[in-house]
């Protein structure tokens, strides 16, 4: 059987939940950021797959992907700036160390 939409959807779903799992279990903020990148990529894949197989004549899914990539780049840059600032203040980028505001 020729792989099609459903195969790609499987990959993207799996990738999404791998990312979610990583987000749940990694203590390191950079690792959590990587998990988020995985989730965003699975979404991109989804958009491309639907664009390719359901509305092949259109370009909207593709543009969404491009914009998501741009936003992801901006988000990563800001997130890393925050992480470095946090590291400066607490000498740690453990997510559990940033809990001063609890209760």
């Amino acid at each position: 059987m020729q792989p099609g939409l459903y195969h790609i959807l499987f990959i993207s779903t799996a990738l999404f939940f791998i990312g979610v799992f990583g987000f749940f279990t990694r203590k390191n903020l950079i690792n959590m950021l990587m998990s988020i990148e995985l989730i965003l990529n699975s979404v991109n894949l989804n958009f491309i797959a639907f664009n390719k197989y359901v509305w092949p004549g259109k370009l909207d899914g593709l543009f969404f992907t491009i914009f998501i990539i741009a936003i992801a780049a901006a988000e990563t840059a800001v997130a890393i700036a925050i992480i470095i600032n946090l590291y400066r203040n607490t000498q740690s980028i453990d997510v559990e160390s940033a809990e001063d505001l609890k209760y």
Partner: peptide
């Protein structure tokens, strides 16, 4: 009930999912 606000982001995320 304040212990729910543990400050642990990942627990929040699990609860959210």
């Amino acid at each position: 009930i304040k212990k729910f606000q543990s400050g642990k982001v990942q627990l929040y995320a699990i609860a959210f999912l």
